[in-house]
Design a protein around this nucleic acid. Sequence first.
DNA 1: AATGAATGAGGATTCATTCAT
DNA 2: CATGAATGAATCCTCATTCAT
Lengths: 190, 190, 190, 190
Amino acid sequence: MTSGRVRRFDPERRDRIIDSCLRVIAEQGVAGASHRTIAAAADVPLGSMTYHFSGMDELLHEAFERFTTSVSDRFEERMAQAGSADEAREAVVRTILDAADPRETVLSHELYTLAAREPSFRDLTHGWMARSRRGLERHFDPETARLLDALIEGLQIHRALDTQERDPSDARIAVARLTHAATGPTPAAG
Amino acid sequence: MTSGRVRRFDPERRDRIIDSCLRVIAEQGVAGASHRTIAAAADVPLGSMTYHFSGMDELLHEAFERFTTSVSDRFEERMAQAGSADEAREAVVRTILDAADPRETVLSHELYTLAAREPSFRDLTHGWMARSRRGLERHFDPETARLLDALIEGLQIHRALDTQERDPSDARIAVARLTHAATGPTPAAG
Amino acid sequence: MTSGRVRRFDPERRDRIIDSCLRVIAEQGVAGASHRTIAAAADVPLGSMTYHFSGMDELLHEAFERFTTSVSDRFEERMAQAGSADEAREAVVRTILDAADPRETVLSHELYTLAAREPSFRDLTHGWMARSRRGLERHFDPETARLLDALIEGLQIHRALDTQERDPSDARIAVARLTHAATGPTPAAG
Amino acid sequence: MTSGRVRRFDPERRDRIIDSCLRVIAEQGVAGASHRTIAAAADVPLGSMTYHFSGMDELLHEAFERFTTSVSDRFEERMAQAGSADEAREAVVRTILDAADPRETVLSHELYTLAAREPSFRDLTHGWMARSRRGLERHFDPETARLLDALIEGLQIHRALDTQERDPSDARIAVARLTHAATGPTPAAG
DNA sequence: AATGAATGAGGATTCATTCAT
DNA sequence: CATGAATGAATCCTCATTCAT
């Protein structure tokens, strides 16, 4: 008889909690990510939270680790599929423009905010950046890879946090300037 | 007679609360900025908080408005003092490298995180970016100004959130590439 | 109209909480004295507890301070009313025998246990003992006062923690021996 | 094959749990002695606790039984080794003064507190006192033995819970007065 | 025989907000 | 005008115990 009401064994529960944690953060921010809200989102009893995770910090760390890994995976794959420098440039541009997904924007900023204050989260941001650079270095020299990586970051943020629409060509021009020197006349203002 | 309790008239109290709010956010994040902690930091009675501000949102908005205004002021002044495109480039480079102040890093990210989720804070980020661009447009064409602004953002973030030291020359090279096209051989990897 | 359901002003509430705290400790021990149980006993909302006391420690300290003060008051009065050394001896004997009140036994031990581990409670036990000695010194020299005080303690404990009834004359004999040397033949066993 | 998990047979585990229980109580009190903390201290799985003991009460009882037995053993031995009434007096004095071991002080009080409220622990305190008296009765008459036992208790407590140092001669004088009546002039205060 | 997984109840504490003064 | 007192909801976390394995 498997009657009763509880599931005593649920091996994927830990996983589900991590996913729910990311979902809650995306929707309500780290501030709204409490044991309660996450437990409810994961359809798991409250006591389950501290059983599986030593505390909110461990949970947050694992959640953001999953997030950065998945974003990095996707970016690396994109870079791997580019067959030439030109295709790589186009992939970078697309990465910048695709960032419209508000979920990722929000999660990124939440992580940055955490990392800005708590060094323990900086291993995640560091690892993330390292993998991005490694992907870029398939097609560009290390110096350029670092600059491109920072540019992607800055353009994504400004696209996300500006109330005004941005012209998509910005990204293309910026990538061009950073990757091959000469594109035309000196752009200093008259 | 000045007997009884003290300080029934304190015209700068509102101001002090806003400053304390920023101080608390810099130290403990928006998450740690409660009426209680801010009131304590400002040495102001708890009941005073809801008297002067309709709620945390109003207070946060005013606090971040003060923050972005002060950062923008400083940047605009820097740009105004640059007498040539070269001096402007150097001012941009210094702006990127000076961002070591953890207080500003933290406050920026806290604001971005807020703005990423709540549109009501996006007027602040939009205004901030607009003023930055206006400053840059004293020396560069609008297109370049936009790109420089994003680059500043990206490099600052990566410098702050990487565990590894960054070479300061990165900033100089990036600014050079974005502002005058040709600086040398094509940097695509071999 | 004083309708509604809440009492917004209740100046004796702090006092009532302290009393309820002692009551709960007497009934269930320090282990059972939680914010919840005490709040319920005092008919006070839970949030009221940490409003009036910084935490359980402060509350416990104040509660036991009240307890020791009241016990000391009573003992001092008894000593003050004794008109002669003989009456003082009798008062001491009665103090030992009266300790049957389980409430006081329990509270004393709870305090001792606390003080045994946390020095911050030792000021209470020290003050208690000091006042007891001061009372005894009205009638006995300091040396004898110290010994009597310890004897009271020991006899009370053994009376309380033995499952076997004790002969009340024990107390009388012990007090006699400690206070005037000669009462008969040497009591060493054959 | 000793593969798989380890230590499915561990006959001393029950013993180790009891010892760990005492250690935890000495360090954190009965309040801090939970199944979890004790299991961790004994390096034993949590589920093992309720397997070996029906509940905390059984465990506490066995732990304190071990404690009182060991203290009683030592005291009895001391008394057995005393060859004369004078040596016995000295042994009693030393027992009082040696009680500086904070571990024993703490454990004694924890037990007293338990016994003060729950009669089920009073068999332990009763047995302890009975054995103490039996030891003393090797050298003193039953009456004196009871008084000495109580005096030991009282002086130990006051030495442990006073913030002021005690003069060791107190113990010697008290024992003298209780055991042979006349030691000098009447100690009543002038 | 032994235990890892699980959980509901309860632990202290913090919070934004209300309201009588 | 300004605030100290008050509170219910929510915070994270620990707990003894149960039970399928």
